[in-house]
Design a protein around this nucleic acid. Structure first.
Lengths: 321, 321
DNA sequence: CTGTTAGCGCCTTCAA
DNA sequence: TTGAAGGCGCTAACAG
C-alpha cells in the first residue's frame, strides 16, 4: 500500500482536474453528474480520505471549537455541567474532523478574548455562563462564529421544567413552597424565579425566595434560613440537584422528614438525584443536546433549536405529605 | 490594524529570511544569537501569532487528540469518568493549539481504528477502557502516537487507594470484609482484587468476592448476594462510588444500619460520595492528571508519570461499628 | 460546467 | 549559520 492518496490521484484516476474533484468531494461548486460519479468512484476505489487540516488551511477556517466557561472559580472546569458539555462537544466535533478545546474565562478577560480572536486555529467559540453584555464586548473577529450556552443562546427550558415540579408540589397538597433560586447576577436565574413567582401568585400562595449558588453547602444554609424565616414551609424547590442535596442533608440533620414534613425538588437530573435517599424529584437538563446545538450555531450551520425541553422526574423526595 | 502578520512579515522586519525566522520561532534548526534576537523582537513588536493549522500541515502532524473509549454501552460517553477525562484533555490541548475529539470504540472495532489511522487530522490517540491485547491490534500508523489510560498506561494506583481503605476497615475492627470487584474482563479490576486478597490472607481473614460493573444497580444486587452468602459480613468494599451507592441503597432498604452493622467504601471520590447519607468513605481518582499525562505520552512528550496516587477520604460510611 | 493558476502559512531539505 | 526554493494537500478565483 502506497502513501495516502491525495486529491491529485483521485482526479487523475477519474479523468478530471483537481478543481473538479475538489468541488465534488467538498460538495461546493457545480459539477456534472458524469464527473460527479467518476470522482466518487475513483475516491472510493483509492480509499481516498481528505486531509482536514489542509482543507481548513485553504479555506481559512480553523480546526477547533473552543468552549469558554466564564467563572471565577478555578475548579469550574471540573464541574459536572461543564464536563458533560465539553464531552458532548468533543463527540460532536469528531465527525467533522475538528476538535474541542476547553478554557476558563474570568469575568474580566478581554485579553483572552483577543487572543482567541487572533488564533487562527479557532474555528468557532462557544461561551457558557456568560452575562448579558458579553456579546457586545466580543472582539469583532469572533462575531459571526460565536454561540452562547444559556440565556440568549442554546438553553434548557428551565422555566417549564421547574414550573412542572412546582405545579406537582401544588397538586400534591403543598401550600408553603419556598424557592432556593440561582445567584441573582446570573441571567439563567431569572426564568425559574419569575415562573415561581407567577405560579405562587396564581395559586394565591406566598412567595418565599432565598438565593443559592449551585453548591450543596449553600443548599444547607438556605434550608436553615428558610425554616427560620418561614417555619411552616412544607416544600423547598431548588434550581440544581447539588443545592437540593444540601437541602436534604440539612433537613435530615435537623430531624425534618422528607417528604412527610417537607418536600424537596432539584434540577438537572444528575446522578446525584437517584443516589440520595429519598430519591430526588428533579427535571432533566439535556446538556448534550444544548452543547451540540451551540456547536452547530457557532459553525454557522442550521441549529436544531435554541430552547430544549426539560421533563420532570418524580422520585420520593416529593411524595405525599 | 492590518491583517494578521505572517512569518514573512516577521522575517522582513528582522532582516532575515523566512527560513531563519521559522527556525527561531519553531525552536528547531540552528540560528545565531544575533538573528535569534532580531526575530524574537520583530515577532513581539508585530504581535505575531503563528498559524497552528499551517504549521501542523507543514509538519504533517494533525490537529487533534482523539479519546477513544472502548465500551459496548452506547451511553458510555455520558459516564462521569469519561466526561471528566474528556474535559481534562480538552483543557490540556488548548494551549498547544490543538483540540480533543471523543469517540466510542466498540470492543470489536478494527475498521474504526483503521479510519483513525488514515485520518491525517489525528495527532494522537488516547484509549481508555482497553483490554490487554489492544496495543497489538493497533494499526501500524497509530503506533508511536497512542497512549493508554488504565492498565499498562496512565493509571490511578487503585491498589494503594483501595488497600488503604481496606486496612482502615481492619483497623477499625471489621473482620468479615467482602469485596464487590470490577468486571473480570477488565484489566483494571485486577489490582484491587489481588490487593484485597493479599490483605485478607495476611490478616487471616476470609476472602469474599463478587463481581460488579460500576453501576448502582449491580451494587444493589451485589449487596444482597453478599448478605445471602455470608450473613455475618460486617464491611463491603467496592471499586466505584456508583457501586457503593447501590450497596448503601440496598442495605438501607433491608434495614441494615451503616456503619453500625456494615461499613461501606467506594472508589473515585465523586460528587456522589458526599451527597449520600452517611457520607461515603472512598479514595481519590485523579482523572485530570491521568488524562493530561496520557495526552503528553501520546504526543511523545515527557509524561509526568504513569501511576498516580490515590488518597483515602474517610466519611461516615465506615465509622466505628 | 471545467481546467489553470495561485495561494493558505509554515517547514525543511539543499546548496552556499 | 543562512537563504532560496519546493513542498504539505486542498480550495477558490478566474477564464474558458
Amino acid at each position: 500500500m502506497t502513501a495516502n492518496p491525495g486529491l491529485a490521484d483521485v482526479a487523475r484516476r477519474a479523468g478530471v482536474s483537481v478543481a473538479t474533484a475538489s468541488r465534488v468531494l467538498s460538495g461546493r461548486g457545480p459539477a456534472s453528474p458524469a464527473s460527479r460519479d467518476a470522482v466518487r468512484r475513483a475516491a472510493g476505489e483509492l480509499g481516498y480520505v481528505p486531509h482536514p487540516v489542509a482543507r481548513r488551511l485553504a479555506e481559512r477556517s480553523g480546526t477547533r471549537i473552543v468552549l469558554a466557561v466564564r467563572d471565577e472559580r478555578a475548579d469550574i472546569l471540573r464541574d459536572p455541567f461543564v464536563t458533560r458539555a465539553a464531552a458532548a462537544m468533543a463527540a460532536a466535533t469528531e465527525p467533522a474532523g475538528l476538535g474541542t478545546a476547553l478554557i476558563r474565562l474570568p469575568l474580566n478577560a478581554a485579553a483572552e478574548l483577543e487572543r482567541l480572536a487572533a488564533d487562527r486555529s479557532v474555528a468557532a467559540l462557544v461561551v457558557a455562563g456568560h452575562d448579558r453584555d458579553l456579546p457586545a464586548r466580543l472582539p469583532g473577529g469572533l462575531r459571526g462564529r460565536t454561540a452562547m450556552i444559556g440565556v440568549g443562546g442554546s438553553d434548557v427550558d428551565s422555566a417549564a421544567g421547574i414550573g412542572a415540579l412546582i405545579q406537582h408540589l401544588c397538586a400534591t397538597g403543598r401550600r408553603r413552597i419556598a424557592l432556593v433560586a440561582g445567584p441573582s447576577w446570573l441571567g439563567a436565574s431569572w426564568a425559574p424565579l419569575t415562573t415561581y413567582n407567577r405560579l405562587m401568585r396564581a395559586a394565591g400562595l406566598p412567595a418565599r425566595v432565598v438565593h443559592g449558588d449551585f453548591t450543596a453547602a449553600r443548599g444547607r444554609d438556605a434550608a436553615r434560613e428558610i425554616r427560620r424565616r418561614w417555619p411552616d414551609t412544607d416544600a423547598i424547590a431548588t434550581v440544581s440537584d447539588a443545592t437540593a442535596v444540601g437541602v436534604l442533608r440539612a433537613l435530615a440533620a435537623d430531624g425534618v422528614r422528607v417528604p412527610a414534613d417537607i418536600a424537596v425538588t432539584g434540577f438537572d437530573d444528575s446522578p446525584l438525584a437517584e443516589a440520595v435517599h429519598p430519591g430526588l424529584s428533579t427535571a432533566t437538563h439535556p446538556v448534550e443536546l444544548i452543547a451540540v446545538a451551540a456547536v452547530r450555531a457557532a459553525l454557522g450551520e442550521p441549529a436544531p433549536g435554541r430552547l430544549f425541553p426539560s421533563h420532570p422526574v418524580i422520585r420520593g423526595s416529593c411524595g405525599a405529605a
